[in-house]
Design a protein around this nucleic acid. Sequence first.
DNA 1: AATGTGACTTGCATTCTGCAAGTCACATTT
DNA 2: AAATGTGACTTGCAGAATGCAAGTCACATT
Lengths: 165, 165
Amino acid sequence: MKGASKSKQRSGCPVSISLETLGDRWSLLIIRDMMVRAFRTFKQFRDSDEKIATNILADRLQKLAAAGIIVAEADETDRRRVNYRLTEKGIDLAPVVLDLMIWATRHEQTGAPNAVVEKMAKNREKVLAKVRRRWRDRDPIPFLPSFANVGGNRGSVRGQIRRGT
Amino acid sequence: MKGASKSKQRSGCPVSISLETLGDRWSLLIIRDMMVRAFRTFKQFRDSDEKIATNILADRLQKLAAAGIIVAEADETDRRRVNYRLTEKGIDLAPVVLDLMIWATRHEQTGAPNAVVEKMAKNREKVLAKVRRRWRDRDPIPFLPSFANVGGNRGSVRGQIRRGT
DNA sequence: AATGTGACTTGCATTCTGCAAGTCACATTT
DNA sequence: AAATGTGACTTGCAGAATGCAAGTCACATT
């Protein structure tokens, strides 16, 4: 029923304000899935690799919508279905998501192939431009594969990335 | 006694792994304070503008140390005092902190002056280089002021920025 | 010796999470 | 058109995390 206003802002610091909305285990994961995996329905998030509980998912979608980071709109062809989309404010989080991805790949044992991520780090601006373009075009094809259950980081890649403009 | 291992990794996704350590209201704030405000003691964090509870602070410092993001070392001149420092892994979070700052300044009502932050966004690489140099030199002088209780940023954003395709 | 400080712990009430199990409006099948 | 299926949520409840106040305890200062 709420999540709406968030009246108790503790500090004017921009980092602090960001964390009031994004500072939890799930919000940025949802945003990442919308951004790079082109998720848009409740079901897709629920069945994703991270196994988020449905009550938490509903709550986070609601809060993200209240924060103006995503919007929810009923599907035209199936009225049961709700399509979630990133707003411009939401897609502007792409740099944050990309940086987190780069950081973890460099410093932790992840399922993402090093070489691919380093290439993205090197072409940062181009990658961000592409993410934004895909968002504007509502491209339904995932930009990156899952990386969720990959054994890890041993240069395994396999042409997952679609190249070119 | 706790906070240490974090054994239940839920996913190999780098963003997910990052959020296992950083996905809460406080961790990145502590890191930000070390990065741009040159904080290094418990007392400084405790008395900072965000008013973190001391048990939470102790817990987060412990977890960040366990994650290799910071190190704690006893002060030479006063054995009661513990000095916390960012590791290289920690200072590598600078891009994330900077992006969060930029994002919130553009999209939320913050205490940070727009012009300053936009200038930092434009000179991203230089700013990051400077942050890193300051870290290496252990510069004790804050890089930025607090922004915590500033009224500021009226007239919000309004299409100041727009990077196109 | 007495008092002060810095860095934490402890207790406890409040809030948030995570699972399982509904509910309910549509959609599809028979 | 009745029965069954689906998608998007709610509800209940136990257990974990948070927030505040009040210690503790090893140094340091007076």
